[in-house]
């Protein structure tokens, strides 16, 4: 393996792990109420602003050490973004719970317009950013080339996988996770068995928002810049990742994200950046033609 290939692999992995984190929000909401939450990309965008605000406030009060700074920022961002997730669900989706399948979809599109413009009006249209927190990088010589890996990227990979592991634990091992899975399998039956499904759905939105918030902090750290429009493209990509892995499946979302990220990086490295997105969408179409339920999705059993 030469240096360039390895570097592209690392590029793809970092990008993909971030896609995966956001894809979790799509896939969980879809799994539980069968709705595509188009405002989810905007939730990530809000969390990017929140992380910059938290960082600015913490630094203003004189917090200097990196671990404390990042911990404080994460805590603040995850909590406030979680509240955003809850409020959005309460306002725009809950009144539509018993209605047609497409009504919440349109309401979500409206919500994403609202969030974008709300942030634009309150924060201004400027590009925003944070200063570099972690300077420096590892450099490995491989053959005649080299691979350069910034500390930030290492941090992102570690944090993203830690976040996914924590979520897997919550869903597989805790009471809350059991309720979520029960509601996903059969909402009516779950409510008969005494689960407050409305509340579980709210929790799912909060968890999705929290994962998006984690992604928001990590992306902001890595790229250092964002604007009120940043949620759109990454939202579409994450949604693609979720479908690729099989929508409704948690490991699928992570796998889909990583496959998409690596595929994009390798394609633009070896062929052409112009047609990178054409390639990733074609890949999606191809996979879906041969495996209509996505990579790790359960095949839909039609009930008569």
């Amino acid at each position: 393996m030469d240096g360039i290939f390895l570097q592209q692999l690392i590029n793809g992995l970092t990008l993909g792990s971030v896609y995966g984190l956001i894809a979790i929000g799509y896939t969980m909401v879809y799994g539980i109420i069968g709705m595509i939450n188009f405002a989810h990309g905007e939730v990530y965008m809000i969390s990017a602003y929140l992380s910059a605000i938290a960082l600015a406030l913490l630094a203003f009060f004189g917090l200097e050490s990196f671990p404390l700074l990042i911990l404080g920022t994460l805590l603040f961002t995850v909590c406030v973004t979680g509240v955003y997730g809850w409020v959005i669900e309460r306002i725009a989706y809950k009144p539509l719970r018993n209605s047609t399948r497409l009504a919440p979809l349109i309401s979500a599109i409206g919500m994403s317009l609202i969030l974008q413009n709300y942030v634009q009006i309150s924060q201004g249209a400027r590009q925003q950013g944070i200063p570099t927190l972690l300077d420096g990088s590892f450099r490995f010589a491989i053959g005649d080339g080299f691979v350069q890996l910034t500390y930030t990227k290492v941090f992102i990979l570690v944090a993203a996988f830690a976040g996914m592991a924590a979520l897997t634990y919550i869903i597989q091992r805790t009471r809350l996770g059991r309720m979520c899975r029960a509601t996903q399998q059969d909402r009516k039956m779950a409510s008969i068995l005494g689960i407050n499904t409305d509340r579980v759905i709210s929790y799912v939105f909060v968890i999705g928002a929290a994962m998006a918030a984690l992604a928001g902090v990590l992306i902001t750290m890595n790229y250092g810049t964002f604007d009120f429009y940043a949620g759109f493209i990454i939202g579409i990509k994450a949604f693609t990742a979720a479908v690729l892995g099989g929508i409704g499946s948690l490991p699928g979302a992570m796998l889909g994200g990583i496959i998409l990220g690596v595929a994009e990086a390798q394609f633009s490295g070896m062929v052409n950046t112009d047609y990178k997105d054409v390639f990733s969408f074609s890949l999606l179409v191809l996979i879906l033609i041969f495996r209509p339920q996505g990579l790790l999705g359960r095949p839909q059993v039609a009930k008569v």
Binding site: T240, L288, I289
Partner: peptide
């Protein structure tokens, strides 16, 4: 032809992809 055997929401994302592909090709 290829996509109609897919179920509801997979169809949605495939058509979304098709729309984006057409736009990107026009652009590139």
């Amino acid at each position: 032809f290829p996509v109609l055997r897919m179920h509801g929401d997979y169809l949605a994302i495939v058509t979304l992809g098709f729309g984006e592909i057409i736009r990107l090709v026009l652009n590139n």
